[in-house]
Simulated assay, not measured.
Amino acid sequence: MTFVRGISRKLHHVMQMDDSLLILPFMQDPSNLGEILQDALNHYYLVEKLFVKQCALAEANTEFMAEYERLNDMEESKQIHAFPKSEEDWRLIAKDFEEKWNFPHALGAVDGKHVRIIPPANSGSFYFNYKGYHSLVLLGIVNANYEFILVDFGGNGRISDGGVLEYTEFYRRLISNKLNVPKHATCEDLPFVFIGDEAFSLRENFMKPFRQKNLTEDRRVYNYFLSRARRVVENAFGILSARFRIFHTAISLKPDNIDAVVMACCVLHNFLRRKCASSYITAADLEGSTTEDNPLVGLRIGHNRNCSLDPKSVREMFVSYFRVTSTT
């Protein structure tokens, strides 16, 4: 409650609202926190002097992050943004994916989005992306419950294809086998993998769909199940941008402050998803309608390097698995 009340006071100062409008309803009924924050953000975007208030909201989010770090020793706080640290943690995520989305041994759905910014002075084309505007790249890994288990933000917009993954600490740990990913499969000898779209490179531990050209029926079935499971990350980004309207405009702040705002929004997303899911996420969000007008643009499908036979053979293992399970 401490960090929620802290950001509420800051928002009150920014919007010149009555403090009771934000704090008292939450104290009376914590379940409607999502509605309170949503109303506050809606009001914030209806007032005048958007740029000034945008900066003030950045300060509010920065304050939230500071408050959140001070609570980091609390077990409840750890659960909001906890990254899996053991094989058991990863197995629990994989179990959720199999039970909810029928994709076995999935450790997370990966995607990246461009966050529109006003570039710093004298930055030239450093942040200029393939869509024709300046951006920073937000890479997210999402579990089966639409929660971010990892967020990496700050890659410049010029890195506009799957290569953005290779610049992250997550990727360095993945290829060096330092993520404690389970090594012993239990389901048709399938390995544990992350899943993504065509923008990423195929690896032994990272699956993506086949190209649409000349698809066999078995590969079409595999694409269906992978895309169905991977949709959670698309929906998570759609929900994030629909609830936090700062993503609907070019953010005009210093890069460090942009980082604080975006990371705070992702933490708030996880918090609201767990604490008041019914008011934070609607049926339309889960059906994917929020992704249709999502201002966060996806990564470009690039010319990925040819992979070795091992990743291809792993993908064919999943093809065989779905061929069997879809006919039984």
Rank of each mutant, 00 (worst) to 15 (best):
M1W: 08
T2Y: 13
F3D: 03
K10N: 11
L11N: 15
V14S: 12
M15A: 13
M17K: 07
M17F: 09
D18Y: 12
D19R: 10
D19P: 07
L21Q: 13
L21A: 11
L22H: 12
F26V: 06
M27A: 11
N32A: 07
N32H: 14
L33F: 11
L33T: 12
G34M: 14
Q38C: 14
L41V: 08
L46T: 09
V47N: 05
K53D: 01
C55M: 11
A58P: 00
A58V: 05
A60N: 00
A60C: 00
A60S: 00
T62E: 00
M65C: 13
A66W: 12
E69W: 15
R70G: 02
L71Y: 01
D73Y: 10
D73V: 04
D73C: 10
E76R: 14
K85A: 09
S86A: 10
E88S: 15
W90P: 03
A94I: 12
D96F: 15
D96G: 10
F97C: 04
K100Q: 08
W101Q: 06
N102W: 06
F103T: 03
P104F: 09
P104R: 04
L107T: 03
A109T: 01
V110Y: 01
K113Q: 00
R116I: 00
R116S: 02
I118G: 02
P120D: 05
A121E: 05
A121F: 09
A121R: 05
N122T: 03
S123Q: 12
S123W: 12
G124T: 01
G124V: 05
S125K: 06
K131N: 00
Y133H: 10
H134I: 01
V137Y: 00
I141N: 01
V142D: 02
N143F: 06
N143A: 10
L150I: 05
F153G: 04
G155V: 04
S160M: 13
E166P: 06
E166I: 01
E169Y: 09
F170P: 06
S176G: 05
N177Q: 06
N177E: 14
K178L: 06
N180C: 09
N180Y: 15
N180M: 07
V181A: 08
A185H: 07
E188W: 15
L190Q: 07
F194Q: 10
F194L: 05
D197S: 14
D197Q: 14
L202C: 11
E204R: 15
P209K: 13
F210S: 11
T216C: 15
E217G: 13
F225Y: 14
E234N: 04
G238P: 02
L240S: 09
S241N: 11
R243H: 05
F244M: 08
R245K: 13
R245Q: 12
H248W: 15
S252H: 14
L253W: 13
L253P: 09
N257V: 04
I258K: 08
D259W: 04
V261C: 13
C265Q: 02
C265K: 15
V267D: 08
N270V: 12
N270G: 11
F271T: 05
L272A: 07
R273I: 04
R273L: 01
R274C: 10
K275Q: 06
S278R: 12
S278T: 05
S279E: 07
S279V: 09
Y280M: 10
I281F: 15
D285A: 14
D285G: 09
L286F: 06
E287A: 13
S289C: 14
T291P: 01
L296V: 03
G298L: 02
R300C: 07
I301F: 02
G302F: 03
L309A: 03
F322V: 02
F322R: 02
V324S: 03
